[in-house]
């Protein structure tokens, strides 16, 4: 192996030990008893793996497979380890540890080879070296195109957009439109813009939580006087912290809670984060109720939904 150059080990006579050298004795006082115990373990191991075979063929419950195979392997392993520990020569044995480093002359030889050949062979062809480096450099850069660029589209404005439009009908996951009578105060439902409710990709950005807080219009913030008609208020369901769905509603405290990292948003107050790591309020979707009594969006979200990122421009 590694000792190719360490001739010392093969110089002297190979080490011999007498069978009654104390190092060669079993490591346990009563080898006979140890042997019997180990035999017992091995037999138990054989039984265990045998039972596993039966359990598999008979299609017994999964836990019987795990327990039988596990116990079988354990006893086999325990027996083997015990054999090694108790019935093999107790030693202690040692091997010499030789210094890893080479002789001074060897070190100098390799340094000389590197330095002097560089000077003689490579440096005098500086132009070739430069061209080669340029070639490899350009290759490294162009290799990025298939290596990275092909992996996916550029983000562009994707993160700023959802499928909510002016007039989008609010529907639940099954495509049912939300009527002004659908929810009682305290009721909550996850909504999507009609036509996108069945699409995983759209759901991921459009998901909006609709809560009916009261029967009268709710003003969550200055300038949002008409946004929550008849107490229906809608916020983006994407947490502004790490993008989890803000899936829990604490009805008494009127808080939306994110189960991932426990950010809490006050729904009366424009979903301002009251607690936890979320840095921004959940964007609010302005709603209106159409002539037939169905809820629709007045406008898209006025800002990107979800967690922050470098290109996000607004607070």
């Amino acid at each position: 192996m590694s000792d190719e150059h360490q001739e010392t080990t093969s110089e002297g006579p190979l080490p011999v030990a007498s069978i009654d050298d104390p190092h060669m004795r079993e490591a346990v006082g009563n080898p006979r008893r140890a042997e019997n115990s180990i035999a017992l373990f091995l037999v138990l191991g054989i039984l265990g793996v045998g039972v596993f075979g039966a359990a598999y063929v008979q299609n017994w419950k999964p836990w019987t497979l795990g327990v039988s195979l596990g116990l079988g392997l354990f006893f086999l392993g325990f027996g083997l380890s015990a054999w090694g520990k108790y019935l093999m020569p107790q030693g202690p044995f040692s091997e010499a540890r030789h210094a890893l480093h080479s002789a001074r002359a060897e070190r100098e030889a390799i340094s000389a080879a590197l330095v002097e050949r560089t000077g003689v062979v490579i440096r005098r062809r500086g132009m070739l070296g430069g061209l080669l480096a340029t070639g490899f450099g350009i290759f490294g850069i162009v290799a990025i195109f298939p290596g990275l660029r092909s992996l996916g589209p550029l983000p562009g404005l994707t993160l700023t957009k959802t499928n909510w439009r002016r007039g989008s009908l609010l529907v639940d996951a099954n495509g049912r439109a939300i009527h002004r009578d659908t929810l009682d105060p305290g009721g909550i439902v996850t909504v999507f813009p009609a036509g996108y409710e069945d699409n995983t990709q759209s759901q991921a950005v459009d998901q909006t939580v609709l809560i009916r807080v009261q029967f009268t219009d709710l003003v969550t913030e200055k300038g949002r006087a008409t946004w929550a008609p008849e107490g229906y208020v809608a916020y983006s369901k994407l947490c502004t912290h790490a993008g989890c769905p803000v899936g829990l509603y604490e009805r008494q405290l009127r808080l939306l809670v994110c189960p991932c990292h426990q950010s809490m948003f006050n729904i009366d107050d424009g979903a301002v984060p009251e607690f936890g790591p979320a840095p921004r309020p959940l964007p609010q979707l302005p709603l209106y109720i159409d002539a037939l009594g169905f809820l629709r969006a007045q406008a898209p979200y006025d800002q990107p939904v979800g967690p922050g990122y470098w290109e996000r421009t607004t607070t």
Partner: peptide
């Protein structure tokens, strides 16, 4: 016991 080199041959 002092450690010994692993015996290659066992008498």
């Amino acid at each position: 016991l002092e450690p010994i080199e692993v015996p290659v041959k066992i008498d």
